[in-house]
Design a protein around this nucleic acid. Structure first.
Lengths: 329, 329
DNA sequence: CAGTAGTGTGAAACCGATACCACAAGCAAT
DNA sequence: ATTGCTTGTGGTATCGGTTTCACACTACTG
């Protein structure tokens, strides 16, 4: 059923039906007739036909590296809360950490498929920059700081610094580090830098032999902890870039009789739900993921409304959460 | 830029451009000219215009109750893997456990917005049934069994039965239960029934005073465990409908000196990542969430292709995972 | 009472694509 | 020589809406 057929059934003109769904220049009797016919037929106008004319899709593209991650799904939840409130729907693309997929979906969105894009990516390249510059619709990047674009990010540096400092203040002398790929500027590079700054400020030199790079999963955390403890020098505090990595490292400690926090303090970033219930409750740094999603969505909304070319960067702060794993003395 | 303008720039007819993007009846020289013009102009055809004519959106609507749940995000990941492979994109609606939102988004999808729908809902009502019957596009339900519709579900009954039986076989005599709302036929009702069957088979009567209904979160699990242990009769084994609830219950046990598994065995369903690293590693039942997503997507794909009216129900099996929390004797 | 602002109307143009059409050329099989 | 099949072609109708337009009718305002 299309608008013409429906208009005939309702006994009004096509224009009247269109006006019914849009502005209000319509007499009450026609409004009633249309409402009645609507109940009877269940007619609903076609989104795509409308979009052809208006160029408005009421869709926002969300590009993310994976779905089954607590931090990412919290961000997404924040995004969806705000956007659904405003009548937008989410076109989700899971790139599975594949950079090509990121590029190709940005390219897809470049067409009149969505009104705006929210991008959660971990690694940004020049290719990203040139593609993002070509976008004719607003884009907001969440979780990373990428100069010249709208961003909502966390204070990853500060978070890592604060957690490392906490452990050093408690008397640790041999700090160790398990991070992630430093091409990831937020979770990789900045958290490493924050760790290093705290170590240096405490009067120590960063021993790169005590620094490992892991993947974003538990097994990798386990393996890196194993490697670290196989050396001669034993660390007495360990900073992990994510809770998941820390959980893996803890697993190794438990199996090998390394007591936490007596022999080794452990702290990380992310404050995931599991932290509370680990065999030693994990000190972590809470990042406001959901807020980041909400703010990113708000930023996008205002960019879509005003079409402004001004780019804003918003950095969210953190909360240090102390639990048993750093509770020495 | 539209197809006409682009065709002029490329020096070919509008039809030629359309054919370039669709079927292949096109001479090589024109193909080359179009390719060159494409590089120069960056033209891309409009999806909505195409959809008006073809009625194909290449979009699948996914309705889910929340995003930040490990099981749901694993299902979604499975869905996205299969559908993106086939060139479909996901239109995600997060209903935040709001049944009205479920209804309204089904209604939205009823229009020509998507080619098919995957529905992850926990509670099904008659309203759902009537609305689903009105859908003119294929729908697949994942995680629940709803007669008369395409479903991919888990053996929730069997999973709960197996876990409870495991604990009873180890000698437990006072089984307790913390479940979820039984309006949720899968995680609520079936897991309760599975528990009850195992208890009855072991020669005990189910004591409804030892059965609590919790929400899907850790704090709720904690509270219900507290309530349960405040009574005179103390359970010696506890089945929880989800790992998260079990984790909350464990938290209570730890705080109150209840030893696991010596005083209380605990087992649950879901096999989430945290189970391995809880202070007592948690026995659980692995459900194939990601596979459910993949199979649901496959089912939808074939329904969209064949437009078949035959409804299939696929039930996935489970794997019992034994860890410390049930390791008595 | 003229002027004008606001409300209301349906026909027709328009949005940007694809499907259909009639027709042509090349080639192999009858 | 005729036929049938495949490949290739551009013009145009069509998809299902919205926006524009010219015009009509009221209700104020000065």
């Amino acid at each position: 059923m299309n608008i013409t057929e429906f208009a005939n059934i309702a006994g009004v003109s096509v224009s009247a039906v269109s006006r019914y769904f849009n502005n209000g220049y319509l007499a009450d009797d026609k409004r009633d007739r249309i409402k009645a016919a609507l109940d009877k037929t269940g007619y609903a106008p076609s989104y795509s036909a409308r979009t052809v004319r208006t160029k408005v899709t009421k869709l926002v593209g969300v590009i993310l590296p994976k779905l089954s991650s607590e931090s990412i799904s919290r961000v997404t939840e924040g995004i969806s809360e705000v956007l659904e409130e405003e009548g937008f729907e989410l076109l989700l693309v899971n790139t599975a950490n594949d950079s090509n997929r990121e590029i190709s979906s940005l390219d897809l969105f470049r067409q009149n498929r969505v009104d705006g894009v929210i991008l959660l990516a971990s690694v940004f390249t020049d290719l990203h920059r040139s593609l993002l510059n070509k976008m004719r619709i607003p884009v907001v990047i969440v979780g990373q700081q990428f100069k010249g674009f709208n961003c909502v990010c966390h204070n990853d540096f500060g978070a890592a610094y604060a957690m490392t400092k906490l452990m050093l203040d408690k008397g640790a002398k041999n700090p160790a580090f398990i991070g992630v790929n430093t091409e990831d500027a937020a979770a990789g590079r900045d958290r490493k830098l924050g760790f290093e700054k705290a170590v240096n400020e405490a009067g120590f030199a960063v021993d790169q032999k005590m620094c490992e790079i892991a993947k974003f999963n538990m097994d990798s955390g386990y393996e890196k902890a194993k490697k670290m403890f196989s050396g001669r020098k034993k660390p007495d505090c360990l900073f992990c870039a994510t809770d998941t990595i820390a959980a893996g490292a803890m697993l190794f400690c438990r199996e090998n009789g390394i007591r936490i926090p007596e022999d080794l303090m452990i702290g990380s970033v992310g404050d995931s739900r599991m932290g509370r219930v680990l065999y030693v409750p994990l000190s972590s740094v809470h990042l406001h993921y959901k807020t980041a999603g909400r703010e990113g969505a708000n930023m996008l909304l205002s960019a879509m409304k005003n079409g402004s070319d001004v780019h804003r960067i918003m950095q969210l702060e953190y909360d240090l959460i102390e639990r048993e794993s750093t509770n020495r003395k």
